[in-house]
């Protein structure tokens, strides 16, 4: 008898469940990539209230891709696994580019965005600045960030 898989219809919830199962591996992966990109050690990770207030670079229950906390501390979260993270807020070009983007480039894009948001304290400014960040992110991540920054043109037509 085949066992029916319990897969949530909501991609955000699916991503969160997957992230909870694999949180330890993702914690190591996120922490390593933050270091490789040159994020200072004291800005890697933030308190995760969902898991005993541990300090973590990956917060599996959060769904936004990443976040920034006091002290410019950066964490990634389950949103990096969500293929629909940018839908329906952004146009199809940026949303589908994100959908096709491999995980490591999604992580780079999120890290650059949160890093720039930590510097300016402003989301909109970070959208613009991240596309030309000094962090050594991958070219595909940079193209993703350029598409996000350019999305306003698509909407304003």
């Amino acid at each position: 008898m085949k066992r029916k898989l319990d897969v949530p219809e909501d991609p955000a919830e699916h991503a969160a469940r997957f992230s909870i199962d694999w949180r330890d591996r993702m914690e190591a992966h996120a922490r390593r990539r933050l270091r490789e990109l040159g994020i200072p050690e004291d800005q890697i990770g933030a308190l995760d209230e969902s898991f005993g207030h541990r300090e973590a670079a990956f917060h599996p229950r959060e769904e936004t891709g990443g976040g920034i906390s006091p002290g410019r501390r950066i964490n990634l979260n389950s949103g990096v696994f969500n293929p629909d993270l940018l839908r329906p807020m952004l146009g199809e070009e940026a949303a589908s580019m994100w959908e096709r983007l491999p995980l490591r480039h999604r992580m780079d894009a999120v890290i650059a965005h949160e890093y720039e948001e930590g510097k300016s304290g402003d989301h909109e400014r970070a959208v613009i600045d991240a596309a030309s960040t000094e962090l050594p992110i991958s070219e595909r991540a940079r193209e993703m960030l350029q598409a996000i920054a350019g999305d306003v043109k698509e909407r304003s037509r």
């Binding site: 993270l85 807020m89 909109e124 959208v127 999305d151 306003v152 909407r155």
Partner: peptide, 10 residues
């Protein structure tokens, strides 16, 4: 609910 993505505000 989602608020900001890119330069779009809900």
């Amino acid at each position: 609910v989602a608020w900001k993505a890119g330069l779009h505000r809900n």
